[in-house]
Design a protein around this nucleic acid. Structure first.
Lengths: 264, 264
DNA sequence: CATCTGATTCCCGATCATCGGTAACCCTGT
DNA sequence: ACAGGGTTACCGATGATCGGGAATCAGATG
């Protein structure tokens, strides 16, 4: 363990520091940061000083600290997310121009859906997705698509765990879910009204990568009462194929669809 | 200094590690990473192991490492860039739908223009901007706008240093530049044909933040021969005002325009 | 003006994680 | 079988790291 009496490595501490910020706590005093991260005050000051020196954090006018531009740049420049995002964005705009509510791109990470990108109207009444935000797999159409096209072993593992119920329409029973996943694979898309919040409805389709694996899910979220699945699926499908092709996908080789193991 | 014989803190080493990745080196073997970062091989393995354990790096199928999803998420979720980006994206789409080439949003950081966001055609023939990429201030219309609206003291400092010449049209002499900055402030936009590459031309306008400071530059890049400044400036202007308002800008208070010191 | 609360800086000795050399162990291709 | 690169394992020495404590500073409150 580290020098620390609490027994943590520096890197884990840095994660606690950076992880103490979120979209509603963009800046805070160092003392607050110490409280939120659970690190000793003195230690926090020392680490923050070093981070400031490297530009990984910055002080704003009032003396509070925030994530530094340099850290954003370092990570964004070299993250595999960037390529996926850039390939998808033009197509997402096309979808958005037709559907008008909100369009998202999500991947499967640590048993949750992580949203890589999102475009939508500024006044998104019915959409709880955020860029770099997470939602449960079985509570989103994106998640169900990603699960449906994931490795069988992963599906088994996932379905062996208890699943939270969010609304009356959430599928929580393994058998129901498994049947539904098959349904999704057969139709090529997921349409799930009100499984996480009753008022909204999502439609999602898979995006394929170079190795014919599903790397992401393209999805639209619409108010439940405006639901018009039949009209929207073709738009999503064609856009998803466009993204897939931009990622180096070469068309479907029958039976070879399997879970992404990382590389796009 | 750190325990290291080379005398560097862990944090600086982490920066070297993460900084060894870029858009063309998204993944590499740990040995290669050691070479590129200049760190001792054993040290690199130890640090990478820790980073892998925290999910800040990941191994792909072939055993190479890359920036981890979790690191992207941690930074993206809490970076002040996100707010700026989200406010700007809808307006950028509007611009893009009219201008058709490529639309960028840049900020001033460390005496360079850092591009926060970019949307454009997939086949961007004439545009060298990249998301999280940097370009010189005096080689871009965005840079000149940001400089024009920055603090006088900063302008003096910037102009006191020698400036590289990229094309015949690059302004490198302090006097010329200063005159041009005044021109930009007076007209409210910058239009610079071929100052970094001869074939392309940029038009940029300022984006204001809450405190009536300029926080970013909205810009379009077009082929030089298609230049049609008069028609494009109004589009940019109105969009930039839209972004500014979304950021909490309350309209122009005469004479109070000054450099952003950080907080949006 | 006095008081208080909270944030920040300075100091310092003990400890143990960090450092990085060396060497063995894999692979894959020739 | 050999070569070359990548990876894992081991280990002793060292000094960066840790964090408590106290002083200082800033702002709010009475």
């Amino acid at each position: 363990m580290a020098n620390s009496s609490s027994g943590e490595s520096i890197i884990r501490r840095l994660v606690r520091l950076v992880g103490s910020f979120d979209d509603v706590h963009l800046t805070m005093s160092v003392a607050t940061l110490a409280r939120r991260s659970g690190l000793p005050v003195t230690t926090t000051y020392r680490l923050v000083d070093e981070l400031l020196a490297e530009g990984l954090m910055e002080r704003d006018a009032s003396g509070e600290v925030r994530i530094g531009t340099r850290l954003w740049e370092l990570v964004s420049r070299s993250s595999p997310m960037l390529g996926l995002r850039e390939a998808a964005l033009p197509f997402m705009e096309d979808v958005q121009s037709v559907v008008q509510h909100s369009t998202t791109l999500g991947i499967l990470d640590s048993d949750e859906v992580l949203y890589i990108e999102r475009i939508g109207s500024r006044d998104s009444l019915v959409d709880i997705t955020k860029v770099a935000g997470r939602l449960p797999v079985h509570g989103t159409s994106s998640g169900l698509v990603l699960l449906a096209y994931s490795e069988p072993a992963y599906q088994d593992l996932f379905l062996s765990r208890p699943l939270a119920r969010f609304t009356d329409d959430t599928l929580t029973h393994p058998t129901d879910l498994r049947r539904h996943l098959a349904h999704i694979r057969q139709r090529g898309f997921a349409s799930m009204p009100g499984i996480i919040v009753p008022e909204s409805s999502g439609i999602a389709v898979p995006v394929f990568g170079r190795a014919n694996t599903v790397v992401a899910a393209l999805s639209v979220v619409v108010p439940r009462n405006e639901e018009n699945v039949a009209a929207r699926v073709p738009v999503l499908m064609t856009s998803a194929r466009g993204i897939s092709r931009a990622l180096g996908w070469r068309g479907e080789l029958k039976g070879a669809v399997r879970q992404s193991n990382g590389s796009i």
